[in-house]
Write a protein that binds this DNA or RNA. Structure first.
Lengths: 106, 106
DNA sequence: GAGAGACTGAACCATTAGGTTCACTATAGC
DNA sequence: GCTATAGTGAACCTAATGGTTCAGTCTCTC
């Protein structure tokens, strides 16, 4: 079942990427400036291969951009990274606030 | 490995909950008003049991509240549902904007 | 009070996700 | 040129996820 291949949108990928705590930590780290795969992997005691896979997902979600310079891959927060999900959330957030506002009114 | 049991935070759960497209669709639906498990399940041609599990996750993430009235469970968007993740995102978003702003400056 | 309807929980199943190791490629630096 | 370093890809493993069915329970409604 579920043959809904239907090319995931960037927002789909972004939400999926943010689900993992390791990847969120990577984003926080990149908030402080760019880093290499090795640098990102080190604090998690994770293999380079493992971190590389996380970074690839973050790239596909357009949350991170990378650039290979020499033998090193430099990773950085993508500009406008959170635009899509922020928009999605704001729309829903308006509804949640309406819920709150109308709570006393019964 | 990864014996970091360490009781997930609400924000952890919220991001995990938002990763699933079905659950996001449920939230959008609830943005338009409360609904029962049956009503939520119907558009996905999903079993009630399946939908119930999604709703439980959304509740644990404090994105949704429910109330059993008679034999029906009424589900609604939680007030302040998105506060936690919005805060997290805004912090990171500031960094992403800095990235964008400094791009021309090399 | 009997039957239908709405949900619930337990058990199960297939796929995905997060991680590993191993073998390999491509630079960097002496 | 040699060796160490940084990253990569393929293959594999395990646990978690998203779903199901089946067998209840509880509540309407006639």
């Amino acid at each position: 079942m579920n043959l809904m291949v239907q090319s995931l949108t960037t927002v789909d990928r972004a939400f999926a990427a943010l689900a993992d705590p390791t990847r969120r930590a990577v984003l926080e780290r990149l908030g402080g400036g760019s880093a290499t795969i090795s640098e990102l992997a080190e604090p998690f005691a994770m293999s380079l291969t493992g971190m590389k896979k996380h970074v690839r997902l973050l790239e596909e979600a357009e949350l991170v951009t990378t650039e290979k310079v020499g033998r090193v891959r430099r990773c950085m927060l993508a500009p406008y990274a959170f635009e899509g999900i922020t928009t999605w959330l704001q729309r829903l957030d308006r509804f949640a606030q309406v819920v709150e506002r109308t709570k006393g009114e019964r």
